[in-house]
């Protein structure tokens, strides 16, 4: 069978493979190479070694963006996962109307980041205006504004994953524990959560990478204002490429650092939570 399938490889493989080369492999390799070059257009690229990386790390805006992003990611991973888990726990009990609640909580997730940013800009500015303040005057407002926006967007998505996880736990496990005398908290800590580790792994992974890669919402809600104080890594890289002339090489170096960071953190996180998973 394999042999006869093999003869058809141009039909099965080529379209996706060619698109993959154009859309991913070539840009990726070019990006790696250009991060080591000084250039304005690609034709005048000159190899300069690690100079771009040195400049990237000496750029205070980039460092600031890193800490802002890291802080934001920690806060949102904790908030989103705790809230989504709690909501999922409640909505899997038999409560009248759970289906409607699930529908409502999931909905913001389908709206695009740019649209979300402008919706919340209106609301935050409306609230802050009562105190003669505005969203873009302080990084504090921008930070918490982004946190609220992202929680609103992602809690529903994570809730769906947690609900699927909760429904896969056999009911007799908790029953057996409570017959043995475990109270509600003990059941949660010793039965439900260990059995939920696969879902927790996925959700923390998703919220963490989403936090690090956040771009659209950042651009539309604050655009980095005031004075680039709320600029996150992805937006900082974008601005380095497109609003600073002659900085493309540094921008590409930052992008490589960003890529290593996202992949590294992802692997680290997966290993940490995977080790806590139990077999049923």
């Amino acid at each position: 069978m394999e042999k006869s399938i093999k003869r058809y490889f141009p039909v099965f493989l080529l379209p996706t493979f060619l698109a993959f080369i154009i859309g991913f492999i070539v840009p990726f390799l070019m990006g790696l190479y250009l991060s080591l070059c000084s250039f304005r257009t690609v034709t005048d690229a000159k190899f300069i070694g690690l100079g771009n990386f040195v400049e990237a790390f000496q750029d205070p805006e980039f460092i600031h963006a890193f800490f802002f992003t890291a802080g934001f990611t920690i806060v949102t991973v904790v908030l989103i996962n705790v809230l989504a888990f709690a909501v999922a726990m409640i909505l899997t009990k038999e409560i009248p109307g759970t289906n409607i609640f699930r529908t409502v909580f999931f909905m913001p997730n389908l709206i695009g980041g740019i649209v979300l940013g402008y919706i919340w800009q209106l609301i935050f500015n409306g609230i802050l205006a009562r105190y003669d303040l505005a969203l873009k005057i302080s990084a504090k407002y921008g930070f918490w504004g982004l946190v609220i926006l992202v929680c609103w967007q992602q809690i529903g998505y994570m809730m769906i994953i947690y609900i699927a996880g909760l429904q896969a736990i056999p009911g007799d496990l908790n029953e057996a524990a409570s017959i043995d005398g475990a109270n509600g908290w003990q059941c949660l800590w010793n039965v439900t959560i260990p059995n939920m580790m696969p879902s927790i792994t996925i959700c923390t992974f998703l919220t963490m990478t989403n936090g690090f890669k956040l771009f659209d919402q950042n651009l539309s809600l604050t655009a980095g204002e005031p004075m680039k104080q709320t600029e996150m890594l992805a937006l900082n890289i974008f601005n380095t490429f497109y609003s600073r002339v002659g900085w493309q090489g540094v921008g590409q170096a930052k992008a490589v650092v960003f890529f290593v960071l996202v992949v590294g953190l992802g692997i680290l996180q997966l290993q940490m939570t995977r080790s806590k998973e139990v077999q049923q």
């Binding site: 993959f20 991913f24 070539v26 840009p27 990726f28 070019m30 990006g31 250009l34 990478t209 690090f212 890669k213 771009f215 890594l233 992805a234 890289i237 974008f238 490429f241 493309q248 921008g251 590409q252 992008a255 490589v256 960003f258 890529f259 996202v262 992949v263 992802g266």
Partner: peptide
């Protein structure tokens, strides 16, 4: 390719 952030390839 799933884990590579878009910023890595956007310029190229």
């Amino acid at each position: 390719s799933m884990v590579v952030p878009f910023q890595m390839v956007m310029f190229t």
